[in-house]
Design a protein around this nucleic acid. Structure first.
Length: 771
DNA sequence: AGCACGCCGACT
DNA sequence: GTCGGCGTGCTC
């Protein structure tokens, strides 16, 4: 028997199957989808078995070992991988990497053994430990050629040290052995406190009065028996587990019943309900029924910030909830993955990367906030978690429930066209009225001589909330203190040397920073070009808003929340917890604050420069803007009547104007616009990103790409145009956009491969308009 | 990607 | 003659 194996190397030259002999020892255990260890040239590498065959004309070497008990890539995962590969030209190894957790990949370090100390050059000797072993990490590999020459003369021996990137965590425990034969136990009076049948860890024994050497002596004489136990790293959330059991409304009951009737069918539901209409209650009710049938559920949220509140709801009603997202530590993530693989979790709560998790007996997939763009991965191997979820729904014959207060135009279109089943929750069970929404044109404010970034109405309302001890949310969607700085003498704007975009000014650290590549340098008032002392910040960033707020309302306690502040683990939960405890009056933030926790005391929401996100050059800009504003407006007055004040310059645009009129108005306008310009759902839109170091060559290939694509029937080609990020890390970027009804992905792959070379890289983004 | 191999120039 | 750097070709 032979196995077809994909090697874990991301390189075009080795991007194909290699055949290996399966020896008799491994024959019974090996299965398709397992990770194996194989010889590869002079190396030993990990690979994935993709097929087991009877005949092979190329196999010469044997598989060394099997690394799994259960296949890492299940049949279902192969089905998903196949779908991803159909429309992308990514390397096999990259796709495998996307669908499995990075923690189970291998690290290939080296152990160097010292054989002949006298012959070894002196400058190397200090690297070896007492046992004569030097553990060499990846970043020290440049010394390898020298070591190999020493190996030839038998001075050292280099051995491969393979280990999984992350491993299970074990804890040693001590149990009393009642049958021990050690005589001198009188010396240890502490032993009388040790109970049989209890496992003690080292710290417990120390606190009972044992010294470390005493513990070792007693272990040596078998008074204590050592055992090793796997520890599941516990995932803590700042929130308490509490959930009120509520009676479902008739609407909610109906929605739940319709979903329950479709267990065992691959049907997609669109659960549409305004904020506070109780979509989560419907989820919980359906999940409960499903778990009684001993099936598993995958619950997905678009962002890590939404994990905690959903985890709280789920954990208070159900035991065995596994949680999976990118902010877990590597160890935590591995543990959760193992739990899921071993079928120890009935509910899996995750962000988009969890859509590939190996859940057994999957019975239902729920995607909350289905309209959220975070479900789409645009870096590395691109995929849309919503699409993957629908593949799994088909594969298992199970329902997929998409929930949203503001469904994406495409989902709503499908629901109204009966491709999906629409479930509508119209009433707010608590009977709270929708908040008042006021649109304020800042051009009028200026005419009235108000030059502040806050309108007079917003200022009055904020002061009013302070007096009433109620809370305010302020949304402002731009990071930093100022989007750029400008020399008032010569007009020079400092730019990133690699990305050619203006550097954002951060006042607290007094630095200029590139948003795309992270390049930073200290801010200097003296212009580098004309050497005048005239460099000043221009425009408004969130840090500037914060300082203005503090200046205008000196008594208010203000919290700020943006991506820069919440990069450390658990920090956003901490800020939310503070705000929930009313340790602050105003929470100022970027779009992060538009979703997540329910703040009962918030009765005012203010949005500054609401039309900022309309300026993004994409047909999705108006949809994103409407969703963001509706979402943030819904945060006001969850428990008593609230107020929303929206400031901007272009308030007549339907994405903002429809806020006062409702989702249906927005949907009609958006659909009309898309029909006119033939965008989704009337045509599909995909993009090509053409990158290269030479401006001219890159543009030329982009133009050739356009010419090749234009020859295809039923395809409309737009561009090439400069990408939203024109240049990043020394590479110029152009975009070609296509609109089509049907397309042959193989032809697309062929064209992009033809036009890609060492200098020019072309990446195809199916169903995307974001670059 | 990462290994061996072979060529070459620098240094003893 | 040996050491170290770099280009090339190959991996079942």
């Amino acid at each position: 028997m032979f196995a077809k194996v994909i090697i874990d190397i991301k390189h075009q030259n080795v991007n194909h199957h290699y055949d290996y002999i399966i020896n008799d020892e491994l024959k019974d255990d090996i299965k398709i989808g397992m990770r194996v260890l194989v010889p590869f040239g002079a190396q030993t590498r990990m690979g994935f078995v993709t097929d087991i065959i009877e005949k092979s004309s190329t196999a010469t070497k044997e598989i060394l070992d099997i690394l799994d008990h259960v296949p890492t890539i299940s049949d279902e995962l192969f089905y998903i991988i196949n779908d991803i590969q159909k429309q992308s030209s990514e390397l096999y190894s990259s796709v495998f990497d996307t669908v499995i957790p990075g923690e189970i990949k291998l690290d290939y370090d080296k152990d160097v053994y010292l054989l002949n100390e006298k012959e070894c050059p002196e400058d190397l000797l200090s690297n070896f430990n007492q046992k004569g072993i030097w553990h060499l990490k990846k970043n020290q590999f440049d010394i390898l050629p020298r070591l190999r020459r020493l190996q030839k003369n038998d001075v050292v021996e280099i051995k491969l040290a393979i280990k999984q990137k992350t491993n299970k965590k074990y804890k040693t425990t001590y149990t009393l052995n009642s049958n021990h034969t050690y005589q001198k136990i009188d010396k240890y009076p502490q032993l009388k406190d040790i109970k049989a049948d209890i496992q003690y860890d080292k710290n417990q024994l120390i606190s009972l009065g044992f010294s470390i050497s005493q513990i070792n002596t007693l272990t040596k004489h078998q008074v204590f028996i050592l055992s090793s136990q796997q520890m599941i790293r516990n995932i803590k959330h700042v929130f308490d587990d509490k959930d009120k059991l509520v009676q479902l409304t008739d609407e909610q009951k109906l929605a739940a019943v319709l979903i329950k009737q479709s267990f065992n069918q691959s049907k997609t539901f669109l659960l549409k309900g305004v904020t506070g209409s109780g979509k989560t209650e419907v989820y919980l009710d359906v999940i409960e029924d499903l778990i009684k049938q001993d099936k598993r559920v995958l619950v997905m949220v678009p962002e890590i910030t939404l994990i905690a509140p959903m985890a709280q709801r789920l954990k208070s009603r159900f035991s065995s909830v596994a949680i999976y997202h990118s902010a877990l530590s590597a160890g935590e993530r591995l543990d959760q993955y193992q739990m899921i693989l071993n079928d120890e979790a009935s509910i899996v709560l995750s962000t988009r990367s969890g859509v590939f998790l190996p859940i057994k007996d999957l019975g239902l997939i729920i995607m909350d906030e289905e309209h959220d763009r975070s479900y789409i991965q645009t870096e590395h191997v691109t995929y849309d978690a919503k699409h993957i979820a629908s593949l799994r729904s088909t594969y298992h014959h199970i329902p997929l429930v998409l929930g949203s207060a503001t469904p994406s135009v495409v989902s709503m279109y499908k629901a109204l066209g009966h491709e999906y089943t629409l479930l509508n929750l119209t009433s707010r069970p608590l009977g709270i009225e929708q908040p008042d929404i006021k649109l304020i044109d800042m051009k009028d404010e200026l005419k009235q001589k108000n030059t502040s970034i806050f309108s007079r109405d917003l200022l009055i309302s904020m002061k009013d909330r302070l007096k009433k001890e109620e809370q305010t949310l302020i949304l402002f969607n731009r990071k930093g203190y100022a989007p750029f700085v400008l020399c008032r003498q010569c007009g020079d704007v400092p730019k990133c040397p690699d990305c050619e975009i203006s550097l954002t000014y951060y006042k607290d650290k007094n630095i200029l920073k590139c948003h795309y590549c992270g390049y930073e340098k200290p801010f200097n008032q003296t212009c580098e070009i004309c050497h005048q002392n005239a460099v000043k910040e221009v425009g408004v960033g969130i840090e500037y808003v914060e300082s203005e707020l503090k200046r205008t309302l000196p008594n208010a306690r203000i919290l700020r929340m943006d991506r820069n502040l919440t990069q450390t683990k658990g920090s956003h939960e901490k800020i939310w917890h503070q705000f929930l405890n009313h340790d602050a009056d105003i929470l100022l933030g970027t779009q992060m604050i538009s979703k997540g926790l329910d703040f009962p005391k918030v009765t005012l929401v203010g949005v500054l420069m609401a039309d900022l996100s309309l300026k993004v050059p994409s047909y999705l800009a108006s949809e994103d803007t409407f969703m963001l504003l509706t979402q943030i407006a819904g945060r006001s007055g969850r428990h008593q009547k609230g107020e929303v004040i929206i400031q901007g310059y272009d308030l007549k645009h339907y994405a903002i104007d429809a806020l006062t009129k409702g989702y249906d108005t927005f949907y009609k306008e958006a659909l009309y616009e898309r029909k006119l310009s033939q965008y989704e759902p009337y045509s599909h839109v995909s993009q090509f990103l053409i990158e290269g170091q030479s401006y001219l060559k890159t543009y030329q290939n982009a133009f050739l790409l356009k010419k090749r694509l234009s020859k295809l029937e039923t395809v409309t080609v737009l561009g090439p145009s400069k990408a939203l990020i024109k240049k990043i890390r020394q590479n110029f970027r152009f975009v070609v956009t296509i609109k089509y009804k049907n397309i042959d992905h193989d032809t697309i792959k062929e064209i992009t491969n033809d036009l890609s070379n060492d200098d020019i890289h072309i990446k195809y983004y199916p169903n995307l308009d974001m670059i």
